[in-house]
Amino acid sequence: MNNRHNFAAPRLSLRFIPVWRRNFLVWKKLAGSSILGNLADPMLYMLGFGYGLGSLMPEVGGARYITFLAAGTVCYSTMNSATFEVLYSGFSRMHVQKTWDAILNTPLNLDDVMLAELTWGASKSLLSGLAILAVIWGMGLQQSWLLSLWVLPVVILIGLTFSAMGLVMTALSPSYDFFIYYFTLVITPMVLLCGVFYPVDRLPDFLQIAAAWLPLSHAIDLVRPLILGRIPTYIAGHVAALATWGLLSYWLALGLTRRRLLK
């Protein structure tokens, strides 16, 4: 019998590409509002806080506040974009529009659909990260062109990690309302703990220890030095931390989704 266990390893296949293209085609049609929502919002925050608060602070972490914040915003915006995509749009495709059901009747299987969701979430978030990076370049905030280009592969990794984490929630969710738990209990605390707006070393010790485990901290520890013109320290460790969060989440999300849909 081919009675595979739900939590068996993912089966990888390039057949996911048509599903990715489907999402891309939908996005192209709605690109205007999508770009505005995904990109304008973080940019306004970055500029507002950057200049407003920045004028009160001489320097943060050895840089102008707006530069410090811009590096955090790249990560924050990438995370948010991936999360929103796999949570709300992913749930809509899976549960509301039954797009996945239609796809599963073709030669594609659920593993292909999930891989498409993962890579699509990462693709959309790459666009968000890229937009903030473009503002950074436009304002000349980066200290080194070459190092700031290295932000791009990091953004892809951040997008994959947070897409995978979000897919766990999508797999468990009975309705859109459920996602508020994830934002309130996971995303928002992470934003406040991981050094988007201020250096983590300003927090009490126990919060610093907690923050060190969270994926957003590792993302920021990679991106911020690259913007500030330094080579990050402990690169392998940060990459491994993000990859571990991503892979474990993806494996869990796939297992939970198989359990939910393949019955």
């Binding site: 048509p18 599903v19 293209r21 085609l25 939908v26 239609a102 796809i103 030669p107």
Partner: peptide, 17 residues
Amino acid sequence: DPDFSVRENLLVYGRYF
């Protein structure tokens, strides 16, 4: 797919094969 036209529905679905 509610976001697509009649034609696009056929095109996108065919790609899955």
